[in-house]
Nucleic acid binder design. Sequence first.
RNA 1: GCCCCCAUCGUCUAGCGGACUAGGACACAGCCCUUUCAAGGCUGCGACAGGGAUUCGAAUUCCCUUGGGGGCACCA
Length: 502
Amino acid sequence: MAESLGLATVKEKPRPQQHPLPPLPNAERYPRIHVRFAPNPDSVIHLGNSRAAILSDEYAKIYRGIFTLRFEDTSPSIKPPQPEAYEAIKEDLKWLDVRWDNEVIQSDRLPVYYDYAERLLRIGGAYICTCPVDRFRELISEKKTCPCRDLPVDEQIARWRGMLEGEVKKGGAVMRVKTILDHPNPAIRDWPAMRIDTKPHPRIGTRYRVWPLYNFASGIDDHLLGITHILRGKEHEVNMARQKFMFEYFGWEYPEAIHYGRLKIEGTVLSKSKIRAGIESGIYESWDDPRLGTISALRRRGFMPEAIRRLILEVGVRPSEATISWENLSSINRKILDPVSKRYIFLADPKPMSLEGIEKEFEVSIPIHPDHPDWGSRRFKIGLGSRIIIQSSDLISTKTRKTPYLRLMNLFNVEITPSGSCRFHSEGIAEARSIGAPIIQWLPEGAGTPISVVKPDASRDPGLVDSGVIGEALPQVFQFYRYGFVRVCRSGNSLIGYFAHS
RNA sequence: GCCCCCAUCGUCUAGCGGACUAGGACACAGCCCUUUCAAGGCUGCGACAGGGAUUCGAAUUCCCUUGGGGGCACCA
């Protein structure tokens, strides 16, 4: 009720062209909204992961709520945490302008999980199952009970201690939460909550040998931390159903959960395991390889955090799958970048040319930004004997088009003679139009610095860029005239560019 | 095999029983502007998966079919 009006006024920065996010369900029932982002620090985050973070951040801002960042690192063996990932994820989040109030690491909270595991055993909500996993699956698929399920509480506790104290070997026992044996969804029947994992954890070593599984740790924490609203992918819908049994035993109320659909980006792999495999096999150079959809790769290529946020907000919280196109992301980014990006000249596959027919000296200035004359301009002098550099592709185009003319941007018009020389034709822009000369970018010989531009497919465009970029703060995203937006970085003594989009 | 979720232009999205001859963005086409193949302006193209049902009236509710996604881990 209060939402539709309330949202507009509370929102910090109104984004006019944005679909407003729908109100959070039952927001009025909670004195303070509390959201969380719960990544697994087994690697960096990508566009798909950032959705939960950005959406949660946005709602936290709208409702002036609390945002908790929770690292879910409870699987030393199967999803081993990467020590660098904790910081890398935080860096990505900061870059995305996601702000959090609390930070929790699940591997610090094992005693809490142990406490609640024992409570659950004592109230009969869980049991320690020592059946071989294949045997258990067989029974459960036939809706049959496992012999461990109905053992008395004392025996359960004794078995639990055995797990904790090392009497039980890895794989020898698991704690299961009792649900409904003949639940129509086999995925929900008596789900595992605790298991033994003796592999050293990178943060806390071998201090613990029993680790909670996702549904147990996540559910316990969501309640204990006071999370009111969970935003996560639809793949967690079944997990919610599982966790609700545990909440029922404890007499807790399950948080409001919003499950949005899968987010894909056209032609790009967003699966962490596939990315990792690609890096290990040498297909990708690193986690920020320009071909990837990781946040670090997008950053490296010159996508702005605001562009990612707008995209995520546009996609919203619908439960259907969405396949975003690079065109869409690029268009948003272009609108952000275009008004603020300095223009420089870049020549791919440069070709030096002598100028013929020059009878005076020309002074040209090429604006740093066409809409901001006050930003200054690049000035060059061209006179007798000057040589210039153009792109090979523009030279070739004079042969494939009907006219042999080119206009050198802000300079004059030339004719490419059949012998391949470059002859002064006329000075004015009007003449250029009348002879159908396309305007091309160019550089005086000696004014360029070598640069290699890495394209989104990892191929490279070697060329020359106006040496003026060397005086700029780098890395910085520029628009190269007639080429596109490129993030220019120093690489040792040379320059390297990453192509964002045209 | 069993279970859950989803379904509007090529893509993203608005729509929550009458204001829909279905709106916007991107892409595409044309025109304008422009000394960038950028940005900007205008115009155009273009969708309610199919079938039943409810209703005076359905993109909007219900059912079925089809299609897509996810789950059935001692992963998260």
